[in-house]
Amino acid sequence: MAFPKVGNLAPAFTLVNQNGEKVSLKDFKGKKTVVLYFYPKALTPGCITQACGIRDTKKDFDKLDAVVLGVSPDPVKKLQSFIEKKELNFDLLSDEEKTVAEKYGVWGLKKFMGREFMGILRTTFIIGKDGRLKHVMDKVKTKTHHDDVLEILKTL
């Protein structure tokens, strides 16, 4: 499955966050740039590094009028635990059915330590205030993800 095309409207979605509250892409249209990042699994080393980088630079995202939403197939309870244990200051969304991951083309074949399996391909989408896809990052480095996204936001 391919990623949505830059310039097109981003695929609409409504998911529940760590508090069980519904969050929709349309909630931000005309108000905020949305940084939608997909990560494989809460409370795993790479995902912790990535999330903590965003947590520590949230003020920079706020200055650029951007909201960050993390999406994984984890259940709400696990997202709550991730938020609490790592003191995250942004919403994590539960996509247990992987419907949003499939819409965005990030549910696919992965290879790790010689075995193949289906999983989330770590990918970030930047969606403009107009609801259109502005940028796709498919080569995400967990340690520098936050800085890489901020640099892209500054050029948009």
Rank of each mutant, 00 (worst) to 15 (best):
L69K: 07
G128S: 05
D27S: 04
I120E: 03
L92H: 07
K85S: 11
A12N: 15
K141N: 14
R55M: 13
K41D: 05
F82M: 03
G20L: 05
K31F: 11
K129L: 12
L79I: 10
I54Y: 14
V76F: 08
E96A: 12
T57Y: 11
N19F: 12
M137N: 14
I127Q: 04
P75M: 08
D56Y: 03
G46S: 03
V6I: 15
G20K: 03
G7F: 11
L109W: 13
K31I: 02
K111D: 12
D60Q: 14
D147F: 13
A101G: 04
K63W: 09
F13T: 03
T14N: 10
I126H: 10
K85Y: 11
L93Y: 01
G70H: 00
T155K: 12
A101T: 06
C47H: 03
A66Q: 05
K77W: 11
L133D: 11
D27V: 12
S94D: 06
E96I: 12
R55L: 06
P73Q: 07
K85F: 09
A51V: 01
K141M: 07
D147C: 08
A42K: 06
K63S: 13
K134G: 02
K5G: 09
I126D: 03
V140P: 01
K141S: 13
K63P: 10
T14A: 12
R122C: 05
G46K: 04
D91M: 11
E84G: 09
F3H: 15
P40E: 04
K129D: 05
V6C: 04
F125N: 01
G53A: 07
E102Q: 06
P11Q: 05
K31G: 06
S94C: 12
Y39T: 02
G105L: 02
T124P: 11
L25H: 00
E84D: 15
L93Q: 08
D56L: 05
Y39C: 02
T44L: 03
R115Q: 10
E102V: 05
D148A: 10
L93N: 00
K32F: 07
T124N: 08
L69Q: 07
E96F: 02
L93G: 02
G70C: 01
K26Q: 13
T57M: 14
V34I: 11
V23N: 09
K22S: 15
V106Q: 00
L88E: 00
V76L: 10
I48F: 09
I126V: 14
T57E: 14
T49Y: 03
E102T: 05
Y39N: 01
F28E: 03
